[in-house]
Each structure stands twice: as C-alpha cells, then as structure tokens.
Amino acid sequence: MATDARVKELMADELEARAPEKFAEAGSNWPKKMMGFFFPENEDTVDLCVLAVLDEALAEDGTSITKKARDNVAKLIKTSTKASDAVKIIALTTLKPIPTS
C-alpha cells in the first residue's frame, strides 16, 4: 500500500537512473511529461521502468499482486501516459483488496 508520494519518489529514482538526460531536461516538471518523453517510441523500456517501480513498491510493502494485475499496469501505462498518471496507477495497483461484509 505504497503512498502516491512514495511511488513518486521511486519513479523519480528510476527515471533518473534510466533516462538521466531527459530527467534533467524535464527538471521539477517531470511528472507532467509523458513517459514517451523519457523513452520515446519504445513501449518495452516504458514497461521495464514502470514494472521496476511497481516491483520496488511491492517489495517495500512486503506484499505481492497477481500476474494479471502486474501485466495490466504495463498495458495501462504507455508512452502516451503522463508520468504523474503512471505514478497514480502504480500506487492504486499496490492497494490490497478489502473484504466486503
């Protein structure tokens, strides 16, 4: 159950490590950039980045999600997705199902 703020930090770390030039160019405006700004025209590298953030967030929580949910994250986040939306999608995906009464 990573918070949006924590996922944002993890995303910033990954982007800085994987696309340092683009991250520096975006500066503090990076959440407003599309993932394709950092990884243009390549859905694979976007997937590798967002899955690394998701896996890291889940590891910090000491939890896991289904393979289908993990695949869905990569399906939902594309080169045309804003980085801030990617952060939100990952944070929501780390939420646990709550039992209904």
Binding site: R70, K88, L92, T93, L95
Partner: peptide, 20 residues
C-alpha cells in the same frame, strides 16, 4: 473518479480518500 489501475482495468474506480 480515478484512473484505471492493475486490478481495475475494465471498471470505473472511484477513489474515496483522506485529504493527504
């Protein structure tokens, strides 16, 4: 309404959240 996420791809998720 919030964004679709890994466990809610086809549905319409509504986020009810505490003011951070």
């Amino acid at each position: 309404f919030t964004l679709n996420f890994g466990n809610c791809v086809e549905g319409f998720p509504v986020e009810v959240a505490l003011d951070p």
